[in-house]
Each structure stands twice: as structure tokens, then as C-alpha cells.
């Protein structure tokens, strides 16, 4: 089977501790092109990424994990890659598991690397509530370990996707509105080696995330079928 032209997109903020070994591992195993989006790091993340052969896209200021990811998706779309694998830089997502995502690439538009064994009881309650509210049949909605094909890249490069706050339900609901198929595959994940979650790091940010996601669920639960809206993406 021919190796697809894949770009690995890694948003990173102060991940100097983990980024080097991660990039080396990906290069050795797959030889894919890698883009690291430096989202306002204050440490040597960008320099280490360059040393390890990645293209670094430096953000002028931190835009958050989703918008950093979108920078990578836009870069891939402009350069006609066949697909993108997004993953975290903190060591949670394992390069060995990329094969599981790639194995489903020909069948669906978006593959989500799912690991529902992680997360606290409360996080599981939140995931299940959002799943029921939105009607999206994805168990691990916050997983950033995903594979997007070209059709998904086109949708997610659009201006409307820049309005989303997180790479979770909003992204999935948008893709569903556009009729793209989504599938989960079970993958193993490690504990975060460095850094902290940008969502679940304080009660305030958790509350803000929960409210924002609940509103996204409620407003977009019924897929948009308006041609004028859908035309914005094509």
C-alpha cells in the first residue's frame, strides 16, 4: 500500500521537555512531514522542534490549542497534503498508535483516537452529557489525536471554524453539518509528561468550557442544512 502524503500537526506551548523525543520518534517510525505550531511558548520549544526537522509556525501571541491546530490544518490544506494527523506535544499521544488512525483513512473522513479509560468520573459525566445533547456518537470528544482527510481539511480551514473555541464537539458538529463521516478507533495513551491541560486547569476554565460547550451543543445539535450557510465552505 502506498504511504499517503500525511502531515503531522502538533500545537505546542512550553513543551520543551517532550517535543524533541516525540518528533524524533515520529520521524524514525513514519518519515512524515511535521509541523509544530509554537503558540506563544516562552521556552525553547520552537528551537528544539527546528533542530528535530520540524517546520515551526510561530504564533505572534497564544491563540489556544484549537486555533494553533487550525494554523497547521490551513498550512496542510494550502500545500495539498492528503491528510493530517493532529496530536498533543505533551507525550500523551503515542506515535505507535498513528497506524491505528491510518488504517481507517480510506473509509472515513475523520478518525478519532479514543481512550476513554483516561479522565476522572466527572469528566466522563460531562462527555456523556454532551454526547446525548449533541447527538454525536463519539465517546472521547476531547481527544486531540485525530486524522483528518482532505475534505475535512477544507471545512476546518474555513473562517467559520476559526470561531470555535476548542477542538472537540464544535469541530465534530461542524463536520457533521457538512456531511462528513467520523469514526473512533481505540488507542493507548500515556499520562501527560509535562505541562497542564489548557481546559481542565482551574475551576473557572472548567466552568467556562462546560458552559461554552453546552451552548455549542444546544445551538448546533440539529445539523444546518441551509445552502447559503453550507456554501461558505465550498
Amino acid at each position: 500500500m502506498a504511504i499517503p502524503n500525511i502531515l503531522v500537526v502538533i500545537p505546542a506551548q512550553d513543551e520543551a521537555l517532550t517535543i524533541g523525543p516525540l518528533l524524533a520518534d515520529i520521524r524514525t517510525r513514519y518519515g512524515f512531514d511535521i509541523v509544530v505550531i509554537d503558540d506563544g511558548s516562552t521556552d525553547a520549544t520552537a528551537a528544539i522542534a527546528r533542530e528535530n526537522g520540524a517546520v515551526v509556525l510561530p504564533h505572534l501571541r497564544a491563540l489556544g490549542a484549537w486555533k494553533a491546530t487550525q494554523t497547521g490544518l490551513r498550512y496542510a490544506y494550502n500545500r495539498s497534503y492528503e491528510g493530517v494527523i493532529t496530536m498533543d506535544a505533551d507525550g500523551q499521544h503515542l506515535p505507535t498508535e498513528m497506524a491505528a488512525l491510518l488504517s481507517r483513512m480510506d473509509s472515513v473522513d475523520v478518525v478519532i483516537g479514543s481512550c476513554i479509560s483516561r479522565g476522572s468520573f466527572l469528566r466522563h459525566v460531562a462527555w456523556n452529557s454532551f454526547r446525548i445533547m449533541s447527538g454525536i456518537n463519539v465517546k472521547d470528544i476531547t481527544s486531540g489525536f485525530r486524522l483528518y482527510n482532505l475534505a475535512a481539511l477544507r471545512v476546518l480551514s474555513a473562517k467559520e471554524a476559526t470561531m470555535l473555541e476548542f477542538q472537540d464537539l464544535g469541530v465534530l458538529l461542524l463536520l457533521r453539518s457538512l456531511g462528513l463521516s467520523i469514526e473512533e478507533v481505540n488507542v493507548a495513551m500515556d499520562e501527560r509528561i509535562s505541562g497542564k491541560s489548557r481546559i481542565f486547569n482551574s475551576w473557572f476554565s472548567v466552568s467556562s468550557y462546560m458552559l461554552t460547550t453546552a451552548i455549542v451543543c444546544l445551538t448546533k445539535a440539529i445539523p444546518l442544512r441551509d445552502v447559503r450557510y453550507l456554501k461558505r465552505f465550498y
Binding site: 509541523v35 505550531i37 517546520v55 515551526v56 509556525l57 510561530p58 504564533h59 505572534l60 501571541r61 491563540l63 486555533k67 487550525q70 494554523t71 490551513r74 498550512y75 494550502n78 473562517k159 476559526t162 470561531m163
Partner: peptide, 24 residues
């Protein structure tokens, strides 16, 4: 304000892409 914010964020994204291209 949302429109302006989105435009600025997309400009930051584009600048990042152009900067990388320049380095290459």
C-alpha cells in the same frame, strides 16, 4: 467585534505560515 477578532486571529495564523515559508 467577533468578526474583527476572527480576522486578527486568521492574520496571526497566516503570518505564522508566511514566516515559516520565509525561513524555508
Amino acid at each position: 467585534r467577533v468578526k474583527t477578532r476572527v480576522d486578527i486571529e486568521r492574520m496571526i495564523q497566516r503570518m505564522a505560515m508566511l514566516e515559516a515559508e520565509l525561513v524555508q
